[in-house]
Design a protein around this nucleic acid. Structure first.
Lengths: 337, 337
DNA sequence: TTGTAGGCGTTATCAA
DNA sequence: TTGATAACGCCTACAA
């Protein structure tokens, strides 16, 4: 059995109060006592029981994150990096990270949010992949549970978030393609309820407008943010009588799938067909050809989000509650042979 | 403020005992009472406070997993899938998944394991990427904390695990390459303290032996399980005076990096140089050319591991505590143009 | 500077 | 079938 604070106190012939205060660094403990306490506690391998401390302190020292798992396969490197960032920053503040999974928008998801909030298992939450009208925003606001988001939603109010200016990014990307002589530029998007779809599509339209190219709805198709989805969408695009000369994927996975479709069709990517993505995942660098993309620093964003969340939990005010970052356009061979 | 069991009891004019027992499904509660309790509890949005319940029950209903984060970038799809599997199975049993991050083998890692065990924040742990001599096995055994592992280590004793027979897999892979006429087959491995390195290298040697090809140490180089590592290692291999005609990567990321190096060198992959990997990640399917690989069902393995772990926690005995699965050889163009 | 005691919200024991 | 009561282990006002 692991020792409790009582055991430590007994061994030291001190009260549990003194032990508790010595370990928590209060200054009304004799320096010599403190040293003894700390030494013995370490010797005995004492660590406060989490549940007891949470109950008493009325906080869990944990933050939550729910992965939007979708069938059949979940292997988006975005989330590895995001979780690594959340985990690292949480760990270095002695916070735990609670992770669960739920398909977005289904009942199971809502149940999970309710359970975590009501049971107070987490002190705050991080959200990503926001939806246009995201019930989670109102839900968490209503529950007064601190939360931060990566990206906004239409109903975002005053909660802290970090957003990457994908709209400008996509406009710039279109600009790059236009510069390379493209006029028929396709866009493989995501389901319309996702905020990123609205934003990135807007950017795409901005870019076309800036170049004086009329918007053509036939060049916009829906994907699902996976390689497979990009592959299938690109096949459809390339099978049309008047196929595009460039394809923008809403994320890198989509673009990578599109490259595969193009290759199967015998097109030389970069020369016969330009392809570009968004995210800057490592795959993009090692794909063939290397993929032009808009890079966003996911790991760093996750860490900053946790910093913001912890400040929120500690009731500190944030110097900069809403942050807008610019993605970085990385031009590689897929658009520039 | 979220209601406590007291509030519910008061509203119902019942004792908290009865409320507790009604909600927990004991059978010594009048059916009518139970229904009333459940209805009112739901109406009031009552959910037991996690900390209180954990304290009293002396279990946390959570399992833990620590990600082996390595610099500078952490984007291995293996872990997305693994975490999704852990999370899905945990969630469907009303367990939470605690995730943290630590560089393998460093002090921070040990601290984390100690904190989680002593503070009883988790009822059990899942381990992956075992090391040859893995201190975690003895540590957790000593603490009597239930745990399961993906793969074995040399000091694995009687704990439950699921292992994929990578040794046979790599032997079969070598056999496939030999059949295609290759004799100089290189192996890009991982750091030697990792169990997977021992096992897969053994399989590679088995395969050579079976084909009567002498082992050549110059054809075995060390990578780090990333694309970048595979890229660099392959560059070294291909720069030698007598380069290999086939390269096996210890995992798919390594192989993908190797393909890039080969391509940069002007080699036609599949024809001038065969490349193969291990894992069966989605990238392998969409790479160019599609990558021959040994597929292991990571998501399913993670789910089964959690099932085993939960049984262990519940003190049930496992029908099959140690499971050996066969990987599936998927032959694609990278070895078979 | 140290100790006493009460309570955080549950569940479990025992009695009614 | 229901209720009073005692823990679970910790933190913290307050007293000494």
């Amino acid at each position: 059995m692991t020792p409790t604070i009582r055991d430590v106190a007994k061994r030291l012939k001190l009260s549990i109060t003194t032990v508790s205060r010595a370990l928590d660094g209060y200054d009304d403990v004799a320096e010599e006592t403190r040293e003894r306490v700390i030494r013995v506690a370490r010797e005995m391998g004492y660590v406060p029981r989490g549940a007891a401390r949470q109950l008493r302190r009325r906080r869990s020292e944990a933050i939550g994150y729910i992965l939007p798992t979708i069938q059949p396969r979940f292997s988006d490197p975005f989330f590895s990096e995001f979780i690594a960032g959340l985990g690292d920053e949480a760990a270095s503040n002695n916070f735990d990270l609670l992770v669960s999974t739920a398909p977005p928008g289904e009942a199971a998801e809502q149940l999970l949010y309710e359970r975590w909030t009501h049971s107070r298992r987490v002190d705050g939450m991080a959200l990503s992949r926001m939806r246009r009208n995201d019930w989670r925003v109102e839900f968490l606001s209503g529950k007064k549970l601190p939360f931060v988001t990566m990206g906004r939603s239409l109903n975002s109010s005053s909660h802290p978030y970090i957003e990457v200016d994908a709209r400008s990014g996509f406009a710039a990307l279109v600009g790059h393609l236009v510069e390379r002589g493209h006029r028929r530029i396709a866009f493989i998007g995501a389901p319309p309820d996702l905020m990123l779809q609205s934003v990135r599509l807007e950017g795409y339209r901005d870019g076309l407008a800036a170049a004086g190219i009329p918007f053509d709805a036939k060049l916009v198709v829906e994907g699902n943010l996976t390689r497979q989805g990009g592959y299938e969408a690109a096949r459809r695009l390339l099978a049309t009588p008047d196929p595009p000369s460039a394809i923008i994927g809403i994320n890198d996975l989509t673009a990578i799938g599109a490259m595969r479709a193009a290759h199967e069709k015998g097109l030389a990517i970069g020369r016969d067909l330009a392809v570009a993505g968004y995210d800057g995942i490592e795959d993009a660098e090692h794909s063939r050809p290397p993929l032009t993309t808009l890079n966003q620093p996911v790991y760093e964003i996750a860490r900053r989000l946790v910093k913001m969340l912890l400040a929120l939990i500690a009731n500190e005010s944030l110097a900069e509650p809403q942050i807008l970052l610019q993605p970085e356009l990385i031009i590689r061979e897929s658009t520039s042979p």
